[in-house]
Design a protein around this nucleic acid. Sequence first.
DNA 1: CTGAAAGCGCTTACAG
DNA 2: CTGAAAGCGCTTACAG
Lengths: 348, 348
Amino acid sequence: MESAEQKQQAGRPGRVTAAMVAARAGVSTATVSLVANGKTAGRVSEDNISRVRDAITELGYVVDGIGSSLAKGVSSIVILVAPDISNPFFAKVIAGVRESLGPQYQLLLSVTEAGEFPEADDVRRLMSLRPAGLLVDAPNARFIEDLASPSPLVLLDAPGLESYAPSVNLDVASGARQLAAHLAAAGHREAAYVDSVTGTETFAVRRAAFLEEAAARGINVDPERIISTTIDVGTAASAFAAAWPAWQRAGVTAVACGTDTHGYGVLQEARVAGVRIPDELAVAGFDDLPYSATSNPGLTSVHLPATSLGQKAGEQLRRLMEGKALKPGGVTLETSLVVRGSTAAAQG
Amino acid sequence: MESAEQKQQAGRPGRVTAAMVAARAGVSTATVSLVANGKTAGRVSEDNISRVRDAITELGYVVDGIGSSLAKGVSSIVILVAPDISNPFFAKVIAGVRESLGPQYQLLLSVTEAGEFPEADDVRRLMSLRPAGLLVDAPNARFIEDLASPSPLVLLDAPGLESYAPSVNLDVASGARQLAAHLAAAGHREAAYVDSVTGTETFAVRRAAFLEEAAARGINVDPERIISTTIDVGTAASAFAAAWPAWQRAGVTAVACGTDTHGYGVLQEARVAGVRIPDELAVAGFDDLPYSATSNPGLTSVHLPATSLGQKAGEQLRRLMEGKALKPGGVTLETSLVVRGSTAAAQG
DNA sequence: CTGAAAGCGCTTACAG
DNA sequence: CTGAAAGCGCTTACAG
């Protein structure tokens, strides 16, 4: 009785092993493994297949992920590394990834402080889980080099880093140029730029493309009018509050922001400070988050296809993990300017 | 040469094992394990400790998560299950969890379609990773019962489910009542409610508390004026567009929403349809997302402490995972109404 | 304080 | 088509 009771207690957590299934079906654990993994083709008799299947259902057997991973040398985990999980833009990327990855891979999120990339130590700990694949969003070159991942790797929104790994990019430069052109056409001549502190390539490209096109079209953006903050409404608002008096004196009539979130901060502070948008100051961002359509006023923004970004990246990674070839050349998704009230009025 | 070359190639991925460390330090793998896990107290000589530490640094050894998990019977993974990752509210919860969980636990996200909970199958697959702990946000009773988790479990925002597991709750009922009182004081007599389709307890509590307080204060909310949509700006906008004509005929002057996201949808459609906010219609939500301060007009909202929610839940889980006792009674966090322009004007 | 050995649950050549 | 056995990398009683 003692041992029977113990067994029952131990069995409570319901850990059913391949050995139990094998015993029940009257086969070896090797056969159970073959059936459970669908590798029966020409290797297991119909008879044993159904025997094992029945036993699996009756006992409620699920292949143990840990044991399986150890034997295979790789887990079913896909790690998603991103510097900025708090950006709602990111929630859509995640949804896209999840969709294209399918149910057999588990998504593990490497979350860090806003705008910070994980340290080498964090990454090592993660790699010790033997991930099936890695997805890295908006990285910088140093991080990719430190990573030196032996696992399949796909980069998201990593302009200029295509040589390190297959990438899915956004044509943010094109959107940035459209924005500069739009502001120039509206008559702006003195502008400012609110950047992200992340130090990632995508933000560098956004800024460079904007500045270049602005210069080409006669918009002046003095270097001291480029400020950087974390991607956070409150922080951006404070930074803008500190910078605005000088900008105003310099005749600034437009401010471009690296993300919509920065833009909301500017909008918020502008309201507090009584700066009229867009009459006194035009504001624009990147992301085209849902809230940009309902903000006050609506925020002009470079639309970035977040869900597609995640989907495409998930697809590419899946091909890699399954050992299939990737179409060469990488993927670049279009961006486009969405004009709203925050830049609607013409200026002189 | 052949074998040396092979070794080097095989060594390329840098898989350093405890056996290699042991060989280098001149000890057994048992000792390496003890040192690597900081379990040396009274069990390993100072001499061997530093010997092993040196070898670990020199070789760059990291304990293999898979091997370790299999031996221990549990992994370092904490699974976070939530029906609604796309809500930016959630990004803050995640940040809070990450903060209190510390670096030794890895956060794995169970992501599903907006508003849907994972199926039993999904959960089984996740449980096969032998998680160290589980965090479940805004669940319903059925899900928790299906789960029957053998791992430490903490519930977030799960009013009424405290009997299933330790919970960190938000006093959403209080916020809902404050909102109803606010609308009554402003003179509203006919209202509507835009609910989430999630079917989770927290939304049921929000709605019930609002309806009860509204009724007590003379606000009429006919059952057919309660609609449900997924937590998505566009979907909420469409649902409101379809419902508004009838509501208008019935004299509705206020609409409460289960989340701010629903509220943004109403705001968006109201602008399109030319419904004046708040003069013609007052709108309010729950969450107090950052965007509610910058929307047009600002959205009145019941503030929910998202970061604290995540932090507290992470703390509780950590105690559980470390075998410590929890303070009895669970945790309930305060909520409070933040009044903004979307409900500012008094009505008759 | 130390190490040999068993065991965690599975997968995969291998021999038959 | 089938199963015995080795091995994945680690941790933990256990004996010394």
